[in-house]
Design a protein around this nucleic acid. Sequence first.
DNA 1: GTCTATAAGAAGATAGAC
DNA 2: GTCTATCTTCTTATAGAC
Lengths: 205, 205
Amino acid sequence: MNTKEKILDEALTLFAQKGYANVYVADIAERVGIKAPSLYKHYKSKQAIFEAIIDKMNEQFKAQAMALSINGTDAAADSDIYKNLSEDELLNIGRGLFLYYLHDSYQQRFRKMLTIEQFHDPKLASIYTKLYVDDPLSYQEMLLGMISASGLLQTDNVKIMTLHFYAPIYYLLTICDRDPTREEEALKTLDEHIIRFNRLYGRTK
Amino acid sequence: MNTKEKILDEALTLFAQKGYANVYVADIAERVGIKAPSLYKHYKSKQAIFEAIIDKMNEQFKAQAMALSINGTDAAADSDIYKNLSEDELLNIGRGLFLYYLHDSYQQRFRKMLTIEQFHDPKLASIYTKLYVDDPLSYQEMLLGMISASGLLQTDNVKIMTLHFYAPIYYLLTICDRDPTREEEALKTLDEHIIRFNRLYGRTK
DNA sequence: GTCTATAAGAAGATAGAC
DNA sequence: GTCTATCTTCTTATAGAC
């Protein structure tokens, strides 16, 4: 990782902990291992660093969404996966999603940063809503829609069913972001949530 | 409202919009209608204003919880209310809760302020979790537990049932805090959520 | 309690040597 | 590209008159 990238990385770490206004250019520079004035050879201002983080993460998410969407449509074609979806597999999907969002360093830092800055700028609010509200919901709606179409889950309102699947996951995620010591408890709750979800919407025996 | 109270009120408005670090003592003073130095006759520092807000709101929430708990236990004694709980009444409970949290000015500003500052100080994180995670859940768990005991809702895990009731409400609330233009959509979703919740957990016909 | 004037210090950014 | 020195501006807070 070169200096220019390292600046973004360390800045993201600090912004996620303290928020933009409480992080000083000198703090970022110190973590990078240079002095503040040197940093201005790489970015023209503190604001430019922040914007570079937003741009970079947006790119990353876009690429990810593209990959998911390709897998998604592939999976749609190959609907066998969903026809054989067991409770254990549903649990793995939910856990995988949750732990990836929770532990991936970039995911976590970026999410915290956006959480702190969301009311400061409508643009950031809209990025937050897209990344953590609308995009996950529409992706999971597609997924659960396919499972539903295969008959493994039953509902006449896929959107609400998806809300019932995702809202608890989102809720548990925000708890762990605030207090990592509650992760174990959250994981247990997550499992119970998915098991009950599967029973509530599962085919009547 | 005297000057001392007005300072807290205006400071809360600004902290909720911009976060502590981006609000200047002069901004608060201006909204109050005085100059910055005058403000120091009422509070010894900017930090003291912030802490006074936290203390005041904590008091308010405590009083509220006490009142709710009294009503709660009264209601437990008089369980007739829950025996006759119709879908419409469940809708009203959910909507009332949601709209109160969303529109009550103090509720909204304080929630936004805590959202912004939660990662800056573990104390604030713990207040946030108590007010918006643990307290609502345990209160609603008691309520839904009574409804469940009366036979109107059926589950062998009241905690997860409560999570399924509350998590979507919390999720919709955070959407509206970020973007008030989505309130109408959120209210429709809320109604659909509660209707489905009632059907999913309702007595089998 | 409110004001004007001002101290004290922090923080973003630039100049110019190496 | 990195440094030291420095400029400028902003912000909290105090002093002291009214």
